[in-house]
Computed example of a mutant assay.
Amino acid sequence: MLEALLIFVLQIIYVPVLTLRTILLVKNQTKSAASAGLIEGIIYIISLGIVFKDLSNWMNIAAYVIGFSVGLLLGGFIEKKLALGYITYNVSLLERNDELVNSLRNAGFGVTVFVGEGMNSPRIRLDVVARRSREKEFIQIVQELAPKSFLVSFEIRSFKGGYMTKGMKKKG
């Protein structure tokens, strides 16, 4: 019983570390990802070693599987709270909305305005860059000032230059 509890606890540590390691790797933070991978490897070997020691012990197997599942939930929760990195939003509007543009800029978001050609009429597109941790704030401003806008988001792996670069990195 004690082994099953240990396996469960190790899994709810292991899987969030695995989640964060994957995110760090995707965001090109390889040194941090390697450190997380070291912790992940140690936990993985210990917990699987206990499980493989006695494959007839269904409690250990169940603890591993349930702990993995709970770890996924915890890892997702932690990732959302940390909101590492940056995001870019394309905001499509039917007409120019200077109030929205000014509100976003005053809130500290980087905004570039483009005029495009839609199927039936011209369109305005805003490219907005922000920290992922400010995504809810951004969406709230857009919903308030342009509720019929069409939003598409992209995760940014890296960027260089631009008006907002220094300010965004410092505001962390």
Rank of each mutant, 00 (worst) to 15 (best):
E3R: 09
E3F: 07
A4F: 12
A4Y: 08
L5E: 05
L6D: 00
V9E: 00
L10T: 08
L10E: 02
Q11P: 00
I12C: 07
I13M: 03
I13G: 00
P16V: 00
V17E: 07
L20M: 11
L20K: 00
R21E: 14
R21T: 07
R21H: 07
R21K: 14
T22F: 03
V26H: 14
K27S: 11
N28I: 10
N28F: 14
Q29M: 13
Q29F: 15
T30V: 05
S32L: 15
A33F: 04
A34G: 03
G37W: 05
G37M: 11
G37N: 09
L38R: 05
E40L: 14
G41N: 12
I42L: 12
I42H: 09
I43T: 01
I43H: 00
I45C: 13
I45D: 02
S47Q: 14
G49P: 14
G49V: 12
V51D: 09
V51F: 03
K53E: 03
L55G: 12
S56K: 10
N57S: 12
A63I: 14
A63Y: 05
V65C: 12
I66R: 02
F68H: 06
F68R: 01
F68I: 03
L73E: 02
L73H: 02
I78D: 02
E79K: 09
K81C: 05
L82D: 00
L82A: 10
A83I: 08
I87Y: 08
T88K: 14
V91K: 04
V91W: 09
L93K: 02
L94Q: 10
E95Y: 08
R96Y: 07
N97Y: 03
D98F: 01
E99K: 06
N102V: 04
S103D: 13
S103K: 15
S103F: 14
S103R: 13
L104Y: 03
L104C: 01
R105Q: 10
N106M: 01
F109M: 08
F109D: 02
T112S: 09
V113M: 09
F114N: 07
G116P: 12
E117K: 09
E117I: 08
N120Q: 09
N120V: 00
R123D: 08
I124S: 10
L126Q: 05
V128Q: 06
V129N: 05
A130K: 09
A130D: 11
S133G: 04
S133I: 06
K136E: 13
K136C: 08
K136N: 06
I141Y: 05
E144T: 01
E144P: 06
L145N: 05
K148E: 10
F150R: 06
F150A: 09
V152H: 13
V152E: 12
F154Y: 11
S158K: 05
F159W: 10
F159S: 01
K160N: 11
K160Y: 12
K160M: 12
G161P: 12
G162L: 01
Y163N: 06
M168L: 13
K169F: 12
G172W: 06
